[in-house]
Amino acid sequence: MNVKKFLAMGLAAVMAAAVLSGCGGNAVKDGGSSDKGKIVVGLDDNFPPMGFKDENNEIVGFDIDLAKEAAKRMGREVEFKAIDWSSKEAELKSGRVDVLWNGLDITEKRKENMLFSDPYMDNRQILFVKKGTTGITDEKSLAGKVVGTQSAGTAEEYMDKSDFFKKQVKEVKKYPDYVAAFMDLENGRVDAIVGDEITGRYYMSKHPDTIEAVDTAIGEISMFGIAFRKDDQKLRDEVQKVLNDMREDGTMAKISEKWFGKNITK
């Protein structure tokens, strides 16, 4: 191989490396383990009240307020990036986002590919009734009642597998969304709703005179956490420290009360 050809190949390799390094995600370049870089938060922007677009097309929500306060205390910028939630692990691993912070359940399977914060909130299914209702206190008290829930949700999955709901509950009505279910509850068409605590309490905070919660879990309880890349222990620990501080000084409780009318954080 002649020298000119060798040098040309070397120059091409250097240029290719430069191009590739410039094609990386903004999250890796500006966030991640960098002490003061921007943190890019990946989320589903249609998940009220955790993260969603308001009437001004601004992303708002409980997790948004939590992340903003954490970033402020860390002295960092934060960017909220709507992603295809079904591809969330690939978005994180590729570096297009630094964290997944949007009501994400901690599971053993996910722990294999992601690093999690400590749990900051339980993800429960609980009962909601029309204000002033008596006699509905737990799952067994639903015998003979008409119960509503959202289709294709965790509560529906639990009730479909339960002999009690199949044999002793008068009827299970399934709705396309919780708004429709709660409207029927307010109008007396169902006796109770079994649904996501976070969604139900958010709706209840907007209708405090008509809906109340029965603070009893139905089915299994999962936990929400913030997910990081497996090798980003530094960022995980930095975020965890400020979350601990926010829990201890009451800031997390205040944000919860704003969105749910009650402190439901861990």
Rank of each mutant, 00 (worst) to 15 (best):
K111G: 15
F116A: 13
R189N: 14
K68E: 14
D98P: 05
D163F: 05
I83M: 12
G75K: 07
M121T: 06
K131C: 12
D196Y: 09
S151L: 13
A155S: 13
K72Q: 11
D118L: 10
G148M: 01
S87T: 14
K81P: 00
L104Y: 03
R73C: 14
D191I: 04
A82S: 15
K166V: 11
E108F: 09
L185I: 10
G75T: 12
K145D: 00
T149M: 12
L185M: 09
E91W: 14
S94C: 04
T137F: 06
A152N: 15
L66I: 15
W85D: 08
D160E: 12
S151E: 13
E91V: 09
K93T: 14
L100T: 03
F182G: 05
G132L: 05
D118K: 11
T154R: 07
E79Y: 09
T154A: 13
M114L: 15
E69A: 12
G195P: 10
R124V: 13
I126P: 06
I126C: 07
D98K: 07
D138N: 12
Y178S: 10
N102D: 13
K140V: 01
K81T: 06
F128W: 02
A143R: 00
T133K: 10
K170F: 01
D184T: 10
D122K: 14
R124S: 10
G132K: 06
D177V: 13
D118R: 07
G148P: 04
I126E: 11
R96K: 13
K161G: 08
K72R: 13
D184A: 11
E157F: 13
F116G: 08
G148N: 04
K161D: 10
I193C: 03
V78Y: 01
S141N: 03
E139H: 04
L115V: 09
V172H: 06
N123G: 05
S162I: 08
T137K: 11
T149H: 06
E186P: 02
K68Q: 11
V169C: 01
E112M: 10
V147A: 08
K140C: 00
Q125C: 12
D98T: 09
D184L: 08
E156L: 14
Q150P: 05
S86K: 07
V194E: 03
I193P: 01
L127N: 02
R96N: 14
D63K: 01
K170A: 10
I193K: 01
E139A: 06
S86G: 09
A181E: 05
Q150D: 08
V146D: 08
Q168Y: 04
T149K: 06
K145Y: 00
L185F: 06
K72L: 09
I193S: 04
Y158H: 12
V78D: 01
L100E: 03
W85P: 02
D84Y: 05
V147Q: 07
E171T: 05
E186Y: 02
E171Q: 08
A152E: 12
R73V: 13
A90D: 13
